[in-house]
Design a protein around this nucleic acid. Structure first.
Length: 420
DNA sequence: ACTCCACAGGAAAATTGGGGTA
DNA sequence: TACCCCAATTTTCCTGTGGAGT
């Protein structure tokens, strides 16, 4: 790089010059390339938008609309498009419509959803975060909704989480509230990435949830490029990026089940990377580096948000793996976990719970497990960390509660050994 | 063919903790 | 303050199971 500058100017330069001359000039705010950014256009999503608009069109004439189910993998634009469509509807009909967006991963009990719903409706909202009976909140809400005289649209993002949790009871309560028989009325837009969601519903819930659905198919690499280009050109001048970098972001996003979010994040981090390195343009190598940091960020976030016990279980998996590569079993992890808990003076959970934590960690993609039968020696899960164990360990030990464990090694003698 | 290990994982009971009411 | 209600979490109890050893 420096060599090329020397060539072009024909002089030896001050080493600081490169920081002065080569920064990529940002045309626009980099947040255009972030998840928070709500775009005004949705390439390759016209059919979905049209279906949704048609489905909700009754509302502009004052009729109620059917409930709507939206399917699609992460990063296929479900949430953005839904917010866009409801936003447009609000623009059209003014404050006759209230939209309430609830992410069911965060708010997964009927209680918390109802509380959120209540907050969306204008008027006093003095429902405490817990304590009231569901019936009481329910009645209060019905009165509130009726009183407001508005049409309610409830967007339930990751609606499948409601069903997993308690067999659809939460969903039933909400459907009942939004149903016409209470007089409250309203439309529910459910968003899910689980294509079998509808099939798994309880019959009484099924009957209330109409079958009207919109599919968001994964983006392919070409489509992702069409999504990236308008955003990138708002941020960068043409001379500040390699076309190949965009193609690579699109390709990686496409490989990750057509994930636009991933592609966009990747592009943003690549740009940040290039700026930090004071390169003159964003290139493929920045994208590769960005992919790496992105991966680590995801891991850090996942680890950080785990409850303490889950972190200790994860640490036990890593330490077991260090002792016996490829052969950490549930039993081994459990007793190691119990030891670690005692080391730092907290009451260990039962192995049944640890077993559940192991399953949860697998869902998070932190570990892989395979059930194996060893005949006479029982049946157990073999547990393996999916990779980057050193990073994971580091993130686990960032928890101040677990600091006393920072020097622990897999080779340490554990009480487990005494029983063998 | 039968036993029996070391769990998996479902169901139900028990505990915990926020909040209300008398 | 004592006690009740409720939801969420955890424990307890349980049945099921693939295959090495006998």
């Amino acid at each position: 790089m420096v060599v090329s500058i020397m060539r072009s100017y024909g002089v030896l330069m001050n080493p600081f010059d490169k920081y002065e001359t080569q920064n990529i000039a940002l045309k626009g705010d980099l947040s255009i390339l972030s998840v928070i950014h709500q775009p005004e256009e949705f390439p390759h999503r016209e059919p979905q938008i049209n279906t949704m608009v048609a489905s909700l069109s009754g509302l502009i004439r004052g009729f109620s609309a059917n409930n709507l189910l939206i399917y699609g993998k992460t990063g296929t634009g479900k949430t953005s498009v839904t917010k866009y469509v409801t936003g447009m509807l609000e623009e059209k009909v003014g404050d006759k419509v209230i939209t309430c967006y609830v992410n069911c991963q965060t708010y997964d009990s009927p209680y918390s959803i109802l509380v959120n719903l209540s907050k969306c409706i204008p008027g006093d909202s003095n429902i405490p975060p817990s304590g009231w009976t569901l019936d009481r909140i329910y009645d209060e809400l019905v009165i509130k909704i009726k009183g407001s005289g508005k049409i309610l649209i409830l967007i339930l993002d990751e609606i499948d989480k409601l069903v997993e949790k308690n067999g659809g009871d939460s969903l039933y309560v909400i459907l009942k509230l939004m149903g016409e028989d209470t007089g409250a009325g309203g439309t529910i837009i459910g968003i899910t990435n689980d294509s079998s969601f509808y099939e798994r519903l309880d019959p009484r819930v099924k009957s209330r949830m109409s079958r009207e659905s919109v599919m968001f198919s994964p983006y392919n690499a070409e489509e992702l490029k069409d999504i990236l280009y308008p955003r990138v050109t708002k941020v960068l001048n043409p001379e500040s990026y390699d076309e190949a970098a965009i193609s690579l972001c699109a390709a990686i996003g496409a490989r990750e089940h057509g994930d636009a979010r991933k592609a966009i994040d990747l592009m943003r981090i690549s740009i940040e990377m290039a700026i930090r390195e004071s390169s003159d343009k964003v290139s493929v190598s920045h994208v590769y580096k960005a992919r790496d940091t992105l991966e680590i960020d995801v891991i850090r976030e996942t680890v950080k948000t785990q409850p303490t016990h889950s972190k200790i279980v994860l640490l036990s998996v890593i330490l077991s793996g260090e002792r016996h590569p490829n052969s950490a079993t549930t039993g081994e992890v459990s007793s190691l976990y119990a030891d670690l808990c005692r080391d730092i003076g907290i009451q260990p959970l039962t192995s049944r719970r640890v077993s559940d934590y192991i399953s949860e960690l697998e869902d998070f993609g932190m570990i892989n497990t395979t059930v194996k039968s060893l005949g006479r020696y029982g049946r157990t899960r073999y547990i393996k960390i999916t990779g980057r164990e050193n990073d994971i360990k580091r993130f686990i030990l960032e928890d101040t509660e677990l600091e006393p464990l920072k020097d622990i090694k897999g080779t340490r003698q554990f009480r487990l050994d005494e029983n063998i």
